[in-house]
């Protein structure tokens, strides 16, 4: 905006309103202030505008008698989450698959690790927590080896 404080034209209603509401940019605000101090007409319009702002706000507030305290918010009972195929089946399957792959290719392979075919049981349990995004869901994977050793792995 090309505002030169010393030669500023009389202030239009829009700028005056912004000025009264403290919504002018700093440079503009200084220019308006300077002008008002030196122009009787604009000074009187500024007074009017300011009085209007104060009085309308005050008048509207007579509509409010008392303010009640916010009542306790009735938090709805947690809904039973709908069966989410992606979360309950695909993701655990993917996790289990990668885990098996890890066991298979893992560093323990050349020692006492079991070949893939001998890992007899892999169970995974999921309980979808509706309050958490997908990437924060927990899965428990239980691996039972043929010698009966049970390992439980929690994946987050």
């Amino acid at each position: 905006m090309n505002l030169k404080p010393t030669v500023m034209k009389c202030i239009n209603e829009e700028i005056l309103q912004q000025y009264v509401d403290g919504e002018c940019e700093e440079r503009e605000q200084i220019a308006v202030q300077k002008h008002i101090e030196n122009c009787e007409g604009c000074y009187s319009r500024w007074e009017q505008c300011r009085a209007r702002m104060i009085e309308i706000k005050r008048s509207l507030n007579i509509l409010i008698d008392t303010l009640p305290a916010a009542p306790p918010f009735p938090v709805p009972a947690v809904k039973v989450p709908k069966r989410n195929y992606a979360l309950q089946v695909i993701v655990p399957l993917a996790v289990a698959a990668s885990l098996l792959l890890l066991i298979w290719l893992g560093p323990g392979k050349d020692k006492n690790s079991l070949p893939l075919e001998q890992v007899l049981q892999v169970c995974f349990a999921t309980e979808v927590d509706a309050n958490k995004p997908a990437h924060q869901q927990e899965f428990t994977i239980t691996v039972v080896s043929p010698d009966g050793k049970v390992s439980e792995i929690i994946v987050q």
Binding site: E14, Q17, Q18, E23, A51, S59
Partner: peptide
């Protein structure tokens, strides 16, 4: 906003005055 607000406030002020509401 400034322009619309200025117009709306004046309109309300006039309505109030017209209907005998003592604004000031």
């Amino acid at each position: 906003i400034g322009k619309t607000l200025s117009r709306s406030l004046k309109k309300l002020e006039n309505e109030l005055k017209t209907h005998g509401y003592e604004v000031y």
